[in-house]
Design a protein around this nucleic acid. Structure first.
Lengths: 333, 333
DNA sequence: AGTGGAAATGATAACGATAACTTTTTACGG
DNA sequence: CCGTAAAAAGTTATCGTTATCATTTCCACT
């Protein structure tokens, strides 16, 4: 069964292609009788409108391109969840791609997606290759930057203040008496959001006269494993009193390793995660973490984008609040 | 800066549009000098070829559509990992979408993706809406079914034998003396792969004269949480001696709940997962599970698909082996 | 029956690229 | 300096659809 075009349907139905076009789009200008007949024939012929021709003729698709660093992180799955559903209900198609945290990957995504004349582009974070900005003239393509914020977004952004989150976390730990922090996560420069949180941490600890934060980089794809192996790399002679992880899954991996090494948590060492991922809800001891409004970021981002597409002006910068979640993996006092 | 077409570039460069077309595609028939000049101008004009027009003119894109049930499952992230990289290196674009385990969602995916004249389509599982098969005439669109297997694939399939995995797991547990199994997972009919595993389990336990398997359905998006809440629903008066979960994350959630209820694992109750997800590698006690070759499924699938696209005949059915991983959450004897 | 106007239908020209063919230019040997 | 083949560049038709405008059909009302 070869693929049939609007032409074939028209011929089979004995009408012009315009009538078929109108019938399948459900627009006005066809009698109910012919519409039904045309749709009937279209179905038997297995007719599927050619999106390329359609997009070409109407100059512009209804597609929204979404770029994420990775799918191996519940954070982005969460963000995506609210978003895609919203777009779909509004009649837009969305296409997701991953960059594996490389700005080059992001650039490639942009180049690929722009070929399809998208209506909008959604990027993760606010730090991009210089070329990316140049390629996204806000006049033509609505651009949403998610998960991080900046005073000078390409178009507009919705996210959390990572630096501030780092500061808040750091101050909390300082209050609890911690003075020698370590951070385990992606290498500096890879995940710029994490870098900003680390900056905030450093500031908070420095203000309290604490020891310089030690940073340990790990690279395994999987968070549990990299948390575990990251913890192994801690210098046993100058052991930190608290270890902060890129996220809760890594923190859990680290926690497992700590216990295996015979360290008592939180007495010997504190463990801190980030994001308040679902796993923390099932553990007997809550991990100290920072709750981030991921679902909401997706929702607000999507809604703002829809508004923006309909010509409504939206705020350039939307900051959503995080909440500190004290747990039992850091000292009570 | 308005978007510019091949026309604008041609005019600016003082050549015909064909020359621009050849230059940007890097095909033969343009002198090195003009090519450079054209590319230079194209760059300054911010020219991006219109993929829609291109696909229309060449009748057919280089796009591969991938349908997955969800991104909230490391299994599919794993499968995807090897696949997309392979496609990208081979010069194909891939587009991922999720169905949330609904066959209607899958159908919608098909309808959407077919508009873009994809080169190939990748589906998860082998059980589809009747319409899906009709829409995918293997002559036109290569179709790969992943993660499950069947004797009559739409085109060809690469996966594991879920029923057999269930039987193997069941036999192992029977050997260990278990006779009263329960399964906690998605409602029957939602995840057909899980259903097949359950079938296998039922068979194995029945053959040993065990109690009928109890099935508990949970629906939370998150595996840790649904494992936890699923375990709560266990009938305390007729407690099973072993609980099998849809996957290791759910098993971990269940394990946490069991311990909170004061049950000793494995003495009071056995806990079994599936997939050997990364978290199992960091736990002090290994969860009894079944290791599945997810990465390999992605790789083999992708390679076969590439071969298929180049006219090579590939096997209709490729079964990859699973490995039982006995752990400490079931009795040793 | 005749007429005006709305509804239904059709014809034609884009949309932005590529394929296939034709024409012009270049290069080189005699 | 000519002839000729190869390389470079251009012309035209086409892909499948939609926008726009032109035409036909259908009714309701005088």
């Amino acid at each position: 069964m070869a693929k049939s075009s609007i032409h074939d349907v028209a011929k089979a139905a004995g009408v012009s292609i315009m009538t078929v076009s109108r019938a399948v789009r459900g627009v006005n200008g066809v009698s109910e009788a012919t519409r039904l007949r045309v749709l009937e024939i279209a179905k038997t012929l297995n007719y599927v409108p050619n999106g390329n021709a359609r997009a070409l003729a109407t100059t512009g698709s209804n597609m929204i391109g979404i770029s994420l660093p990775t799918l191996f992180n519940d954070v982005f799955a969460d963000v995506l969840l609210g978003m895609r559903r919203t777009f779909q209900q509004a009649g837009y198609d969305s296409v997701v791609d991953t960059t594996d945290y490389s700005s080059d990957g992001e650039l490639q995504f942009i180049e690929r997606i722009l070929q399809w004349q998208p209506l909008a582009v959604i990027l993760t974070g606010v730090d991009h290759d210089e070329t990316v900005r140049a390629r996204l003239p806000r006049a033509n393509i609505a651009t949403l930057e998610l998960w991080d914020i900046t005073d000078h977004p390409i178009d507009f952004c919705v996210g959390i203040d990572h630096r501030e989150a780092g500061v808040a976390l750091g101050r909390h730990l300082v209050e609890k008496g911690y003075r020698a922090p370590a951070f385990i996560g992606a290498p500096a420069g890879k995940d710029t959001r994490a870098d900003k949180r680390v900056e905030g941490l450093v500031e908070a600890f420095r203000a309290a006269g604490g020891r310089t934060l030690r940073r340990i980089s790990v690279s395994d794809d999987n968070a549990f494993i990299s948390g575990y192996t990251g913890f192994e790399q801690i210098d046993r002679d100058r052991r930190p009193d608290v270890v902060l992880f890129l996220n809760d899954h890594m923190a859990f991996g680290g926690l497992m390793r700590a216990e295996q090494e015979g360290l008592r948590v939180p007495d010997d060492i504190g463990i801190v995660g980030f994001n308040e991922l679902a796993i923390t809800k099932v553990l007997p001891r809550r991990i100290t973490t920072m709750s981030t409004p991921r679902r909401q970021i997706g929702l607000v981002g999507a809604r703002n984008l829809l508004a923006r597409l309909n010509g409504v002006t939206v705020p350039e910068k939307t900051i959503l609040p995080c909440t500190l979640v004290p747990g039992q993996t850091t000292r009570a006092q």
